[in-house]
Nucleic acid binder design. Sequence first.
DNA 1: GCCGTTTTCGGCCCGACTGTTTTCAGTCG
Length: 604
Amino acid sequence: MSLNQPLADILARMAKMLDVLGEDTFKVNAHTRAARTFEGLTDDAAAMPREQLLSLQGVGPKLADKVIEFRTTGRIAEHDELASRVPPGVMDMMELPGVGPKTARVLWQEGSISDIPGLERAIADGSILSLPRMGEKFVTKIKESIAFRRANSQRLWLGRADEVASVFIERLRAHPAVRDAVAAGSLRRGRDTIGDLDILACLRESHLADAARVAECFRTTPGVASVPVSGENRASVRVALGHDFGRWSRTHAAEGDGPSIQVDLRVTPPATWGSMLLYFTGSKEHNIRLRERAIARGMTLSEWGLFKDDGQPGAPHTRGCTPVAADTEEAIYHALDLPFIPPEAREDRGELDHLGPWRLIELPDIRAELHAHTRASDGVLTILELAQDAKRRGFHTIAVTDHSQSSAQAGGLKPDRLRQHIADVREANGQVSGITILAGSEVDILSDGSLDYDDDLLRELDVVVASPHAALSQDPATATARLLRAISHPLVHILGHPTGRLINRRPGLSPDIGALVASARAHHVALEINAHWMRLDLRDTHVRAAIDAGCLIAIDCDVHEPADFDNLAFGVSTARRGLVTPERCINAWPAERLHAWLRAKGRT
DNA sequence: GCCGTTTTCGGCCCGACTGTTTTCAGTCG
C-alpha cells in the first residue's frame, strides 16, 4: 500500500489546522501544495531517499523531514500537537460553504462553538448574532449550507454529472443570445467524481448586452431549487436531482448518492472566451502556475485575459488595457511559451514542463471494444446485435467476453456452454461485414490468483480478459500476489478492472501498483481502464504509473447494454489524465496489429 | 515553508460576490 495518500491526507489536515489557528498563510499553502504533490505522485514516497523527496515540487527540508518522520513512526509530532489544539468539530465547520478559517475561528474562540451541532444550537437560540460580522443573512446562508452538506456527503459520479450538465448546456445553447455553452471545471478535466458543475456560456457578438438574460435562462432551468449566488455575468444554483436529469438519475436516484448538486454559470463575450474557459476549467493549482509564469514574463493573467504588467494599480481589464491574449486558450498558452495543454492534464503534476505538442488518446482513435457481454451471461444483446452496434460506432473489432463459471450471479458460462458459445461466435463472425467478432471470455481471477477455466479451454479463445470479481476485501499483500499470478499467466491478454472498485460504493483491492505495472509490462499484459463511470478502474493516477512504466492500456466499455458504449468518453478522459497516447492503447491499433498481438500470446 | 530567467532574502495568483460595513474582510473558484 502506497504511503502517498495517507501522507497527502495528514499534510492537508495540518494545513487546515494551521489555517484556522491563524498561522502564516504561506506556510499553510506550502503544506497544501505538498499534500497535492503526494496525492498525484506515482512513485511511492515510502521508498524515496531524502534527496529524491527534496527534488519534489514544493517539498523542502522541513517537509522532507516530516515525511521521513511519518513513514518511520507513523505519526507527525507537529500534527498531533496541532490536533490537540483544534477540536475536530471546528474542522468540520470549515467544510461548510461560506465558512472559512477566519469565520470558524471566530465561532470557536469568541463564540465557544466547536462543532456543527453547537453551531445549530447557537443559530436556534440566536446567540450567534452577538458575534462580530454575523448577521441575519449570514445565519440563513449557514443554515442552508448545513442542510446542503447533510444531503451531499459524496461527490457525484462523472457519468451522472455529465448527464446533469447536458441539461443546462442544451438549454443554454437554445438561447438566441448564446453562441456556445460548454462544461468546464472538473467535468471538462474528466475527474472520476465531480464536486460541483461549472458551465460557461459564450454570447454572440450581436447579443453582448444579453448576459443577464442568459443568466436568467440558466436560473430558471426546471429542477433548480435555490440560487445562492446571482450576479450580472454569473450565477450559482442548486438543483434537486429528480427524474428529469437523465437515465442515471432514474436508475440511481434512490441509492443514496445525494439528491442535489451546485451548478455555477459564467457568461462571457467571445473576446474573453479563452481566458474564461481557462480560468473556469482549472484546476486551481494549474491556474496558479500559469499566473506565476505570466508574472515571470512581465504579464498578469486573470479570467479577463493575459495582460502586459504596466505597473499601474487596478485590474487591467477595468482600465481599458488590450490583452496580449484572451479569445482562445491556445493563444494564452502560446503567449506563455507553452503548447496547448489538454484539460485532463491540468492538475499541476508537472504538465508545464512537458516539451512539444501533446498528443493524447482521443475518442475517435478507439477502434475496438474488447470487453463485452451478451445474453449468454448478463448482457442484453445477442452476438449479432453487439457486432452491429460496434460497427455503427466505427469499430473494426468486437470481442465477446461473457462471464466465467464462478460468476454464477452473472450467469457465468460452464466449460461446455463456453465451447458452444465459441462456436456461435465463430459462426457469427463474417455475418456482419466490416467488423471482426472475436471469441473471448472475462475470466474470473479466483482469490488465489488462479483462473476460472483450465488452460486447454483458454487456449481456444482469441481474447482472455482476467478480472477480479469476488474477495475484493483482501489485504494489499494478498491482493498483489493474486493479481501478479494472473498477469504472469501466459494466456492472459488484459487485466480487467484491476482493483474492482466501485466509486462511492466500495474501495476494491489496494495492490502494489508499482509491482503490478512492472509485471504487466514484462508479460505483455494490457491493463484495462474500465470506462463505466462507476468503475473508472484503473484510476487516473494508476494509469499514469502504468504509462510511466511502459505498459499497454486497454480502454473498454464492459458492454452489457447498448448505452454502455456511450461510457467510452469517460474511459478516454481517464486515459488522458494518465497521459495515454494512441500508440500505447491497444484499442487504437489497426486491426492487423491488434489481432497479431492477440495471437502472439501463449505461443512464445 | 518553499523558492530563484530580477532574488539565498523577500517575495509568494486574481477578481467577483456577499454581508456587514461606513471603506472592507472573508470566501470562493
